[in-house]
Amino acid sequence: MPSPVIFQARSLASAPFPGDTQPWLSGINFSLSRGQVLHALGRSGSGKSTFLRLLNRLQDASAGALELAGENALAMPPLDFRHRVQLVLQTPVAFDGKLLDNICLSPPSRPAVDKERARDAAGTLGLDVDVLDRRADTVSVGELYRGGIVRALLAAPEVLLLDEPTAALDPASSAQVYAALQRFLDDDGAIVCATHDSATASALGGNALFIHDGTAKNMDTPDALIRLGEQGN
């Protein structure tokens, strides 16, 4: 029996940027079930990050529909929605304090994150005690990014949006991230992942959208779309 659809878009279009008249992205269609991954592929500057911002409602939609667990996601209270659909941006930032404090950041309206639970979760992504207790502005970009993934996972979202999740990671760290993401999928989570890295697409499997010329084309396996991109674009 197929898993129920958790996240889907129909003819979704982004609102134009200030000063523009045309939407940056339009004609977005996808349907994502629990335990599934959707890859957003495309060249740099093609709109992959805008696509994720649209799905996180950091950017408004001008047309179309977006549903989360069968509800109109565009009408949900935005803060509740973003708690359920967490976005990890491509460029991680260091807030004041230790890396562990950064991982435990949560909105004041939410319960505080348990630090022991955070340490355990961070350990599975290769962030050991020494790293967690260092000031966040002294750790590497890769460690900071993994901290961001841990922070998002600790919020127990239904959908995780990832922007180039392994761009700053070495192969060993990437493998730890893939394993953590696989556990999230096994727990009925769903992932939308923007990447131009075929290794990420292959490691997590799933379907893919190819973002080009302001629209999302084809839904197919990531490998097929990467080949399409290499041939035609």
């Binding site: 967490q86 941006l89 460029t91 949560s106 909105p107």
Partner: peptide
């Protein structure tokens, strides 16, 4: 900017994201 957007992404309100 990035600090603010990072907090918004995980459910902080606008005022909470710029509190500091």
């Amino acid at each position: 900017r990035l600090h603010i957007e990072t907090l918004l992404c995980v459910g902080f309100s606008g005022p909470d994201s710029v509190h500091e």
